[in-house]
Simulated scan of single mutants.
Amino acid sequence: MTLPAAVPKVLRDAVRCGSRWWVVGALQPAGGDPRPAAWDSADGRTWRSVTIMPHPGSFYGPRNVLYSVACANGRIAVIGAQSGGAHGNPRTSTWYQRPDGALAEVPAPFELYGGDEAVDVGRIVGGPGGFLIAGNRTSGPAAWLSRDGTRFVRHEVGEKGALARDGAVLDSRYFLIGAAAPASGQVAGGVVWESADGTRWARSPVEAVELQRLTMFHGNLIAVGQRGDAFAAWRRDDGKWVAVGGGDPSGGGTRAGGEDAAVGGFGRVTPTGVRSLTVAAGKLVASADRVWSSPDGGSWTEIAVPAGPVAVAGSDDALLLIGADRAWLARRAP
C-alpha cells in the first residue's frame, strides 16, 4: 500500500471501521517534531490523508504521535501522545472523528491522563457501548470511558499493583484484562475485570502469567497472553474463562476438567508480548515479533509476512499489516 506523505512517516496502528480502513501514526520530518497523521481508504488501494485538527492553543496535540485507534458505531477515536514537561512524561491527547471525516483533538485537563498518579495510557478499543481506554494509575488499573469519543471519564479498579493491558466494550459490559498484583512470594497471574458501568469491577483470575490482548470472535470474547514461555488463548464461555485448545505450551500436559488448564500454545514469549489481535477472513490473527493465525484459538499457524509487525487489522476478507513505516494488505484468508 502507498500512503501519501511528503516527509518520512511512522505507523503505529490500524482498524477497519464500517466500510473504510484507517491507519494512524505521525509524519516525522528530519530534525523536526513529529506531526499527527492518519490515512483512510475504502478499498485498500487508494489512500488519502485525513485532516488533523488540534485544539486551538494546544501545544502537544500538534506534536502527537497517534498510536492507537478504535471503531465504535461507525466512527473512530484515536489516542496520541508526545513527551514533554520537566520529567519528559507522555502528554496524552484523544482525537474523535468529526462528521466530515477530520480528526479533532479533545480538550482535557492534564490530570485526566497525567498527574502525579499517572503510570500509562494504553490502548483504545470500541464496541456497541462506545469506547474504552485501558491504562494504569498508581492505584492500579484504570478505564477511561466515552460513548462517542468526544469526552472521556476515568474509572479506577482499585487493585493496587495490578496492571491493565487491553479491554473490550459490549452492549452493556466493559472488560479489562491484564495481570493481578503478585502476592508475597508469588508471581502475578492473569486476570479479567468486568463492569456494567465502570464504577464496580468484578474480577476473574485466569491461569496465565498475563493477559495482553482481547477481541470478539464468533460471538465470544477471546483473550491472548502469556502462559509458560509461550502465548495462548482463553475464551469467555457462559461467564467463565476457559482455555482454548489442547496441550500445555510449556510441556506440562493437561489437567482434568479443562478449565484454565488445557492450552494450545504458539510462539515464544517476547519482551513486548502480543502487540495486536484481530479477526481477518474468519480467523484470529495475533502479532508479536511474528504473526500467527488460528481458526479456533487453539491451533495456530505462523504467517509469512514482509516485515516486522507493529499491528494487524482485519475485515471479512482481508488482513492489513502495519510495519514501522509501511503497510501491506492481503486480500485472502491468511
Rank of each mutant, 00 (worst) to 15 (best):
T199F: 02
A188M: 07
R154V: 15
D248G: 08
T150D: 05
R154P: 01
A223L: 12
H218C: 04
L132D: 03
E210F: 08
N220K: 13
T215D: 02
G246S: 14
P128Q: 04
S204H: 15
W234I: 09
A208D: 10
S139V: 09
A164Y: 12
T215C: 04
L176Y: 14
G167S: 04
P141G: 06
K160T: 12
G161M: 14
D238H: 11
R213A: 13
G127M: 07
E159P: 05
G239E: 07
A196E: 10
R154E: 12
D229P: 02
D238P: 00
Q226Y: 01
Q212L: 15
G247A: 04
L132H: 04
L163Q: 09
A196M: 08
S204V: 05
G198I: 00
A188F: 02
G228N: 06
G198M: 01
D197N: 15
A134K: 01
K240H: 14
V169K: 07
V209T: 14
H155Q: 03
A142I: 01
E210P: 05
K160L: 14
H155K: 07
L176Q: 06
M216C: 02
G198E: 03
A168W: 13
A223E: 08
A243F: 09
G158R: 10
V209I: 11
S172W: 15
R200S: 11
W193Q: 00
F131C: 04
V206M: 11
A143Y: 07
G135N: 02
G149E: 08
G161S: 08
V224F: 10
A162V: 12
Q212M: 14
R147T: 15
A181V: 05
G135E: 00
W241V: 10
R236H: 03
D148M: 07
R154N: 09
